[in-house]
Design a binder for these strands. Structure first.
Lengths: 359, 359
DNA sequence: CTGTTAGCGCTTTCAC
DNA sequence: GTGAAAGCGCTAACAG
């Protein structure tokens, strides 16, 4: 029973067969007239269009079309947390923008999936009607997600995901970028350097950075950036932030800085620009001047207007990441085998690092 | 031929019939075992599950299920412009967040549609496989969109749309809110008041606010807020901004303020907080002090950290708007007839208005 | 260029 | 509690 919402109005909607009948042609011909996928005489096409017009037929039912062709025209993007949270991060927005734009070129739409959906939902990763899925800097132990999708036969692309998974991965040079920043600090003479990391797992709390937590981490970039920092400062300790907002950075910064001066680091490596901005504010809260009393570096290269000085950071091509992921998806759907790639980052000198203050 | 991507791997995926056969039951029984929509003995259910496991069957194909049930489980959101642009507006993000969250409760997913899709796209409003669509503060002459969707039988909800369209509309008190702010300015003694409006149509350019432009406007809130301002200052002139960012406001503000002092308004009513912030910056650029030399009011109630003082504005419940729209959609899909509603706004005193400077 | 035939994979009466 | 039958609306071979 029951197609559509059996709302008051609607006597059954016309189907392609109805249109074909009215135009005096077979359904297959009518189908071709609509899709252009085959030869039809102009006169026939016109007749079909006219019949459609009369019957108020707007085109093939996408649901039926999807079943028949095996394609829905929809690509899913799995984002961490809820929209309001994820979308506070400019990097995610830019990446999605690039992704959506590129998918649009291929005629596909973007379905937003949050990690938080219950699997009873009609549109969870185990049941969403998607032709492919992009895992976006996710804290799903992405191997789990990937295996579910593989079983479903849904192709996957990851952005900053686990490279081992045998899936094309669009990456940025998180390790090298952080190492570069750490190197600048070392060259200036910093030795007491602390980290403010991104959450290591979905829904992490503010906490010290422990080896155990790092081992259990599911958020790739957080781990990789930590490695990059430790390439230069092997013993660097730090704080795991509870998110990637200015407020989260401020809270983490306070923990690191609101201590006796002798225990205070001379520099802080924050794993995102928003976190770094928060650290700068935390320093200001405590009467410390940046960069005189404290050097701070970030990651991402987003502009943060509220900061009194430009941040020393590395810029990543967020939108291009999305575009590349989109292109990889389109390629995949065309039967190609897109390759992983890793974007370089670009150093932005800014004005938040300096020589360590004499003690 | 060809189901799915005929990629190297995959020998044909198992179907529900395969599972049923293996479990020694009929397809209908297997279906019930999966969906829970009917009576099955526990033992049968277990057998079906086991067979599924063995065949690597993860559940019913969503495409087939959709065709059969007439529901895709997907709700579309039509946003103006591209993601990167729309999502710079915190109000849109919050609204989408509320919407997605509420839809998630109903088990539906959110498909992002941009007005900019070409109608040849597989997933345009003409052909997206959605159970319903939410028009989000759109500049589509929404009547057009609505009529397409009505013909398709896709139910629609609008957010700040045209109320006449015979569609449930989730609105906020744009007119009353702006009138309230204008009233404050009048009470302080302002008489030379200028407007910085939101774009009146998709992709508007910075331009003077003319009667013709206002008549041709497709973006509802821009029109309504203009009316609200003119309820108090009937002759107020102004500038149509080219977007709703701080930069757009700054540009518009410059046009209004970079004139001989005698031509300068003593107050500016901007139609969004971002525009208002831009106006404040434009004033500063010209050496004017806010609110001493110029009073500025906004609209929305978002926090703008980079501003040196809190903005005088009215706050709208952006997330609740989304939630309400989501609830309306769910209601609609349940066969209900959700009603339009209009949220009130709340005055936020801020510190950007004062008595007009003596001339 | 057009029509015939078949079936995508599933859910849902309805009878047992 | 289970099975048989029907068909959602469409497109893709293939034959004419």
């Amino acid at each position: 029973m029951g197609r559509r919402s059996d709302n008051a109005d609607a006597e059954a909607r016309a189907t392609l067969s109805d249109v074909a009948a009215r135009a005096g042609v077979s359904p297959s011909t009518a189908s071709i007239a609509f899709s252009g996928q085959g030869p039809v005489s102009d006169s026939t096409k016109a007749r079909v269009r006219a019949a459609a017009e009369e019957l108020d037929y707007t085109g093939p039912d996408p649901l039926a079309r999807s079943l028949r062709t095996g394609r829905s025209g929809i690509v899913g993007a799995l984002i961490p947390q809820r929209i309001g949270t994820s979308f506070r991060d400019p990097v995610i927005i830019q990446t999605l923008d690039g992704l959506a734009e590129e998918l649009g070129q291929g005629g596909s739409g973007l379905l937003l999936l949050s990690e938080r959906t219950r699997d009873t939902d009609r549109v969870s990763i185990e049941a969403a009607p998607v032709d492919a899925l992009v895992l976006l800097g996710c804290g799903v132990s992405s191997t789990t997600a990937i295996s579910v999708l593989r079983r479903r036969g849904v192709p996957v692309i990851t952005i900053e995901g686990d490279p081992e998974a045998g899936v094309a991965n669009i990456d940025v040079d998180n390790r090298g970028g952080t190492r570069l920043l750490a190197g600048k600090l070392r060259d200036l003479g910093h030795r007491d350097v602390a980290l403010v990391t991104l959450p290591l797992a979905i829904a992490d709390d503010l906490a010290p950075l422990t080896a155990a937590a790092l081992d259990a981490a599911t958020v790739r970039p957080a781990v990789t950036r930590t490695h990059g920092a430790r390439d230069v400062f092997p013993d660097a300790q730090g704080i795991v932030a509870s998110g990637s907002t200015i407020a989260d950075g401020r809270a983490a910064g306070r923990v690191l800085l609101d201590v006796p001066p002798s225990d205070r680091p001379t520099a802080i490596i924050a794993q995102s620009d928003l976190l770094a901005a928060g650290v700068v504010f935390a320093a200001q809260d405590l009467g410390l001047s940046v960069p005189r009393d404290l050097s701070v570096v970030g990651f991402d290269g987003i502009r943060i207007d509220e900061l009194p000085m430009p941040l020393t950071t590395v810029a990543q091509p967020a939108q291009e990441k999305g575009t590349a992921a989109g292109r990889a998806v389109v390629d995949l759907l065309d039967g190609g085998r897109p390759e992983s790639r890793c974007f370089p980052v670009v150093f932005e000198p800014g004005a938040t690092i300096a020589l360590p203050a004499a003690r």
